[in-house]
Design a protein around this nucleic acid. Structure first.
Lengths: 213, 213
DNA sequence: TACATTTTGTGATCATCGTCACAAAAATCC
DNA sequence: GGATTTTTGTGACGATGATCACAAAATGTA
């Protein structure tokens, strides 16, 4: 379900609780963006203007196989997973929890339809930035380009680290790696998804957990 | 060994062969950049100005564990490998062949020392772009930022595909994947490196190849 | 060419992971 | 709150990949 921000804000005085959480959400977005590149207040307002508050119920899709990628969801609550169907099996390759930017980069960059799916694993909320509006933002100022570049540098570095982990560790150590580096995933995500994420069978992960007790 | 481009160019009239290959190298760079974002002639010249022609003998390092990352090598000849030492084993996680930009993104973005190594697997040549000069370029025009962003989008997408391949395929199919998608790697790279790249033991890869004859 | 070094192949063995089948537990839904 | 669906656990088994040790081949070098 969509809310344009101004609609949302105009409805806010009714509920202090919601106002508070919306403030928090906006601050989280601001802080997160600033970790990559500092925007001016004016620029951040421009960013906010094209951000629509969106909620996704558990099992709802942000993106589905065969569809075009319509943009990015900055997650303020909940968690999403990205998976691909390979030989009738759902292979999860990314998770997006709070303060992450959920999207599928290949279809976002190329504007071809995607062969991947992004689904809400729990009830999820966040700011949705439309691809078309994002592209306009990129044209407006070097600041937004720089922000995009730095975010991508960070993501690529992370992805590279993850790949290294996969190729160099055996299954049990991969799980331990998650425990240490991404404990929030283990709490929120069904272990069958986690198993595919680290490239092992569901049953094997189940046994690894038993052994570790 | 380094050559500033102008020095190199001034020395060129002596050898037509080298002039030709230098022309080819420059065209390759131009074409490659334009695949991501079209630079104006003026912008491309600015890019060329900060590019130094560099040669690396086989086994020479572009980057070593503990060092700062000084920049990017656009490869015009040869091939390099990026590896990390994990439990006394060299895990190769990237290869850079002709028309690739060889660097290690984490240390390039953060300017911390790197814990990875980039080594020439065969005699290698290319244009080296210093990190400091690259940053100045980013400040000069939105065009360079956009180029950087688009290149990173492409790399992230590729890396994501590779991760998916790793988690979803069994060893034999991973090798077949390389055969199909990166045959140039199989020709140029010792199979012990390839084995670590796809997360299997050297001996296993040797047996896979025998089975496939 | 001969020697040294590096890379690749191969056999034997062991450990471990994947698969199938089914049970138990947990979550979801009227 | 009981029934249905989904998720997780577990046993048995077979397949396969890792490891160690060594041989062969290829490559580099004097």
């Amino acid at each position: 379900m969509f809310f344009f921000l101004k609609q949302y804000l105009s409805a806010l005085h009714k509920t202090k609780v919601r106002l508070r959480s919306m403030d928090d959400a906006i601050n989280l977005l601001k802080t997160t963006l600033h970790n990559f590149h500092k925007l001016t207040d004016k620029e951040f307002k421009e960013f906010l203007k094209i951000s629509e508050y969106k909620t996704l119920a558990k099992k709802e899709f942000l993106l589905q196989n065969g569809q075009y990628n319509h943009g990015i969801l900055f997650v303020t609550k909940g968690i999403l997973g990205l998976y691909e169907l390979i030989n009738t099996k759902e292979i999860y390759t990314s998770f997006f929890s709070v303060s992450n930017f959920a999207t599928e980069i290949s279809s976002l960059a190329s504007q071809n339809t995607s062969n991947k799916n992004i689904v809400a694993i729990s009830n999820t909320e966040g700011f949705f930035i439309k691809r078309t509006e994002l592209l306009q933002l990129y044209d407006k100022s070097i600041s937004f380009e720089r922000l995009g570049r730095k975010l991508l540098e960070h993501l690529l570095s992370e992805q590279h680290t993850f790949t290294t982990m996969l190729t160099s560790l055996k299954p049990e150590d991969r799980y331990k790696y998650l425990l240490e580096h991404n404990p929030e995933l283990i709490q929120q995500i069904p272990i069958q998804y986690l198993a595919s994420y680290i490239g092992i069978a569901r049953e094997t992960l189940s046994r690894i957990r038993r052994r570790m007790l």
